[in-house]
């Protein structure tokens, strides 16, 4: 059936673009954290410049999805695949922006040294990277169990974030001269925490794709 071939090809392309976005986001978060640990402003600037690629893929997802809705009239699961692609692309693009925000913090810390070694933040980032990887994996395999696991991982990231903020408050009270840097570092915690929320959204999208029902994993 000709109509199906066009539709199936389009759906495959959408999937490919989302996998690419996921791979890029996972990498850019790792790069941003490394840049932070090493206070490497050169790497940070590269991350900021590279963000345009993610934006372009998101735009392509929107264009292709819109074209398929207009020309192929998808219904039921086909339609959900396209709706989910829009949502996931927008989540992934936001995640990329948040990684860029981390890189911008690195740029602002140019010439300083870290007031304390990073412990919890890298762990938050690691869990978040795993969440990105597994959310995309759950999408590719249409694995609802793996998608739902995002909620648990997200709780872990949230708990670590609270810990980070508590530690930084202590540091700031002990030594007010650290306030500027500690403030920026707590922002980084917030950015990672938001990235994990978006990965959880992807988990929700996968559940919706498979079951047609929207769960609330971010509760």
């Amino acid at each position: 059936m000709i109509r199906r071939k066009e539709l199936d090809d389009g759906l495959e392309q959408l999937k490919g673009m989302l996998i690419e976005m996921g791979t890029r986001v996972e990498k850019v978060l790792g790069d941003a954290m490394r840049a932070l640990e090493n206070l490497d402003t050169l790497a940070a600037r590269r991350i900021i410049a590279d963000d345009i690629k993610l934006n372009q893929i998101e735009e392509n997802v929107d264009l292709l999805g819109a074209r398929m809705i207009a020309t192929q009239q998808p219904v039921a699961k086909d339609l959900r695949r396209i709706l989910v692609a829009f949502k996931m692309a927008s989540d992934l693009e936001r995640m990329g922006d948040l990684a860029v925000d981390i890189a911008k913090v690195v740029v602002r810390l140019d010439g300083q040294t870290l007031v304390k070694p990073l412990v919890d933040l890298p762990q938050m980032a690691e869990i978040s990277q795993q969440m990105i990887r597994e959310s995309i994996q759950s999408y590719v395999q249409e694995n609802v169990n793996l998608a739902c696991k995002m909620a648990k991982d997200d709780d872990q990231v949230d708990a670590l974030f609270s810990q980070v903020v508590r530690d930084l408050y202590g540091l700031m009270m002990d030594n007010p001269r650290t306030i500027t840097q500690a403030g920026l570092i707590s922002f980084v915690g917030r950015y990672i925490e938001r990235i994990a929320d978006h990965a959880t959204n992807i988990g929700e999208s996968v559940v919706y794709l498979v079951t047609g029902k929207r769960p609330d994993l971010n509760a």
Binding site: R3, A76, D78, R80, K213
Partner: peptide, 14 residues
């Protein structure tokens, strides 16, 4: 949007 039967989904999706 979300038929219960796979056969329905397959048919309406062509």
């Amino acid at each position: 949007t979300n038929p219960s039967e796979k056969a329905t989904d397959d048919y309406i999706s062509g």
